[in-house]
Amino acid sequence: MNTSLSSWLVIIVALLAASLPFFTERVFGVLRLNSKKTVWLRLLELIVLYFVVGSLGFLLESNAGNRFDQRWEFFAITACLFIVFAFPGFVYRYLRKNSD
C-alpha cells in the first residue's frame, strides 16, 4: 500500500471512529446496554477509539518502512483533530432539534 493511500485510509477511519460513539447507543457499535449511554461513557469510547486509530496509523507507518519518532506536540495535535472529527456526531446527538 502506498503512503498516500494509507494516509487517506487513516483519515477516513478517524472520521468514522470519532463520530461512532455519538451515532449509536451501543458501546463501540457492538455491545448493547440496558440503559442509555452517558456522556462520560461516550468520552471514554472516544479516547479508546483515538488510540485504536493511532495504532492503525502506527502499523501502516511501520509497514511503509520509515517510522518516525513522535513527541508530545504530535499527540496533542492529533487528539485535537480527533475531537474536531467527532463534531458531526456530537451535533447529531446533542444539538439537533427533533421534529416530534
Rank of each mutant, 00 (worst) to 15 (best):
Y50V: 01
Y92G: 00
G29D: 05
V48L: 12
K97V: 10
R42V: 00
F85N: 01
E73L: 13
S19L: 10
V84G: 04
F90P: 01
L49Y: 00
V30G: 03
V48Y: 07
W8N: 04
V10C: 14
G29S: 09
T3L: 13
M1T: 06
E73Q: 13
L16Q: 03
R26F: 07
A17T: 05
D100S: 09
E61Y: 01
F28E: 12
L44E: 04
T78S: 10
L16W: 02
E73Y: 14
C80M: 14
T3A: 15
F74R: 10
S4T: 14
S7Y: 07
E25A: 11
F22T: 02
S6Q: 02
Y92E: 02
S99R: 07
G89A: 07
V39C: 04
W72N: 05
P88E: 02
L49R: 01
S19N: 15
F22A: 04
Y92I: 00
L31T: 06
F68Q: 14
L15T: 11
F90S: 04
S55C: 11
F75M: 09
F58R: 03
I11R: 06
V91W: 07
F82G: 01
L81H: 08
P21Q: 12
V53Y: 03
D100L: 08
I83E: 01
L31F: 15
L9E: 00
F82L: 01
L20H: 08
